[in-house]
């Protein structure tokens, strides 16, 4: 699913990476604990989380996550934005709760990490 479409479904604001919305994500992961993200996420995912600290971007960077969408109206601090720009990670922000965000995307056909084939 293209980031553009995810942005529309979640009525999200683009915080970093407005030029990268044509990128394709393969699956999504909704999680607030970074170790679990690192353990389960596969490359090419979008991470939905309520955490806005720079470690989200670090986690995305090391595990090849393409984009992060912050939920429930949370806006990332400048350190997080700066790091995302540097590491080429797209940041979105939605007012929806994590629950709605997962529900809407799943029902629009975006798979989760367990449904998506083998790891790469």
């Amino acid at each position: 699913m293209k980031l553009e479409k995810i942005k529309d479904i979640l009525q999200a604001e683009v915080i970093v990476g407005a030029d990268d919305l044509q990128k394709e994500v393969k699956m999504a992961c909704g999680c607030d604990l970074m170790s679990d993200v690192l353990a389960f996420v596969k490359s090419g995912s979008i991470l939905l989380t309520g955490l806005v600290n720079p470690q989200c971007v670090r986690t995305a960077e090391v595990s090849d996550i393409i984009a992060i969408c912050f939920v429930r109206g949370k806006k990332p601090p400048n350190e997080t934005k700066k790091l995302a720009e540097e590491k080429n990670i797209v940041l979105l922000a939605t007012d929806l709760l994590l629950y709605e965000s997962c529900g809407e995307l799943y029902n629009a056909g975006l798979p989760g990490c367990s449904e998506y084939g083998e790891d790469f």
Binding site: C29, G30, F40, L48, Y99, E100, G103, Y106, N107, G112
Partner: peptide
């Protein structure tokens, strides 16, 4: 559940369990 949170929520959502009672709920 064996599934990740994203999928569990997706399925609950499918069953009609929504997230907020009304727009003012958040």
């Amino acid at each position: 559940s064996k599934l990740p949170a994203f999928e569990v929520v997706g399925r609950l959502y499918n069953l009609g369990i929504l997230g907020v009672a009304d727009a003012g709920g958040v």
